[in-house]
Amino acid sequence: MTGLWTLFYKEILRFWKVSLQTILSPVVTTLLYLLIFSHVLAAHVQVYPGVGYAAFLIPGLVMMAMLQNAFSNSASSLIQSKMGGSIVFILLPPLAYWEFFSAYVAASVVRGMAVGLGVWLSGYWFAPHAIAHPGWMLAFALAGCAALGALGIISALWADSYDQLAAVQNFVIMPLTFLSGVFYSIHSLPPFWQGVSHLNPFFYMIDGFRYGFFGVSDISPWTSLSIVSGAFLALSLATLWLLKSGYKLRS
């Protein structure tokens, strides 16, 4: 277990050493969204009865920031060591592929949670709100970050350049998180786009997470948690399989 623990610690230290960029900057960016959108739309949007728009926005923004940062943690660490060649430092030791997986995913969860906590605390100060079901909140936060951590590994393994990885980040992760109901309830969409939203796995992460806050959601949190856990499981199995086969790591 020392190997796994060391790799996990190294990954934590890696983002912690550049925490202005990896924690503070996403917190500030997300707060800007909160300030602008809540200011512009507060008078026009009432999503759930008794929940102000600023408060409604907070869980979605927290989850969005968590997911993006969980993805970016494993993905950027891995692509940097792949491109720079320092990946050999973890390929030469007797680390098992599951240790590799666990350390990267766990570090992604920690980074996601750290950013999420930062966004939530500052959002709370901005628009105080109660938490209806902290257990649900935590379950969705963990499952969502872990799934995105695994997706980050897959993307960085696949990418042969920084550019390719940025394409995944900008053309897949960003739109899926933005269009997952962060800024609106999907019930406000026309039926066709509601259907499309149901195909977006990020929607279930955000909807379930929001249930943890307000005890209200577009669909049952059990359904959402099954889908999110299923996604995490499928992504994990795929990542483990890629790592075991040495895909783009061991020629």
Binding site: T2, G3, W5, T6, L7, Y9, K10, L13, R14, K17, V18, S81, G84, G85, S86, V88, F89, I90, L92, P93, P94, L95
Partner: peptide
């Protein structure tokens, strides 16, 4: 193994690198 390419991890100091490497080998 001392690899041929001059690779390094820009985030860490020499001692940190050596401690990590020890840990990966279970030390």
């Amino acid at each position: 193994v001392v690899p041929q390419e001059l690779v390094y991890d820009a985030f860490f100091t020499v001692r940190e690198m050596l401690r990590f490497q020890s840990g990966y080998f279970g030390l």
